[in-house]
Each structure stands twice: as structure tokens, then as C-alpha cells.
């Protein structure tokens, strides 16, 4: 029973990780590609780590919860790096499938004057 649950968690986690990377290759422009790793991969790794916590907790050596720490950390940091990447992309005015709001890229430039 436990083994089935573990196997399912592991497969789901690895599957989502793979789908996230697949999205990185398949999706058409940078802004859509940004969605794949921040969502699919984070949940994939999250469920892998939960599987790991479950595995070590049920081996009789006491409860093992420190994997939760990595999961929490990932869930806190993934949005931050996604946000920063989106800002960097707006700053460089990357090509986008969606119509950019007219003043966004310009405002980003005004706030962060750069001498590249």
C-alpha cells in the first residue's frame, strides 16, 4: 500500500519535472516559457521531496521532515525568480506573442538606467 503510494508520488513528480522541461522547449515565446518551470517543475520536485520524506519516515528511524524545508524554500523562491526573469525580459523588450502594455518596457528602462 505504502509502496504504491510512494511509486505514484515518485512517478507524478518525475512526470511533472519532465513536462516542465518539455514546456521549456515547446512553448513559443519567452513569457510563455516562463510558466513551465515555475509551475510544473516546482510541483514535480515538491512531490518527489514529499515522497522522500514519506520513505524515510516509515523506515523506523523516526520521523524525517527536513525535505519539507527544501520544498518550502522552493515554493518561496520560485515566484521570486520568475518575477525577476519577467522583469529582465520586459527590460530587454523581448518579442512577445501577447501585446505588451505600451508603457511597461519603457518604464522599466527609465527606472533602471543601464550602461551596457
Amino acid at each position: 500500500m505504502l509502496e504504491i503510494l510512494l511509486s505514484l508520488l515518485i512517478l507524478a513528480g518525475a512526470g511533472f519535472t519532465c513536462i516542465g522541461a518539455l514546456g521549456l522547449v515547446r512553448l513559443p515565446d519567452f513569457y510563455t516559457r516562463l510558466h513551465a518551470p515555475t509551475k510544473a517543475t516546482t510541483l514535480g520536485v515538491g512531490s518527489l521531496l514529499v515522497a522522500s520524506a514519506l520513505h524515510f519516515s516509515t523506515r523506523g528511524a523516526g520521523v524525517s521532515l527536513h525535505e519539507i524545508l527544501v520544498t518550502l524554500f522552493l515554493f518561496v523562491t520560485a515566484p521570486v525568480s520568475a518575477h525577476l526573469l519577467a522583469r529582465a525580459a520586459l527590460h530587454l523588450q523581448l518579442r512577445s506573442l501577447a501585446a505588451l502594455p505600451p508603457e511597461a518596457g519603457q518604464a522599466e528602462r527609465d527606472e533602471n538606467p543601464v550602461d551596457h
Binding site: 513569457y31 510563455t32 516562463l34 510558466h35 515555475t38 509551475k39 516546482t42 515554493f75 518561496v76 520560485a78 515566484p79 521570486v80 520568475a82 518575477h83 519577467a86 522583469r87 520586459l90 501577447a98 502594455p101 511597461a104 518604464a107 522599466e108 527606472e111
Partner: peptide, 28 residues
């Protein structure tokens, strides 16, 4: 709010306006 938007339904928060009154969000 920005973090919740990033983690949930196909959206990434892209930019907070300098006056903190508007959040630019990209939806998949």
C-alpha cells in the same frame, strides 16, 4: 499577492508599477 499569482492559475506577476497601484500580470 505577487507570489500567490506566480504560483497559481497560469499567471506570472511581471512588474509592479512604481506607484504600487498596478501589477502587470502575464497569463498563459
Amino acid at each position: 499577492l505577487a507570489n500567490a499569482i506566480c504560483l497559481t492559475p497560469g499567471t506570472v506577476s511581471a512588474r509592479l508599477a512604481p506607484d504600487r497601484r498596478h501589477l502587470l500580470v502575464h497569463a498563459l
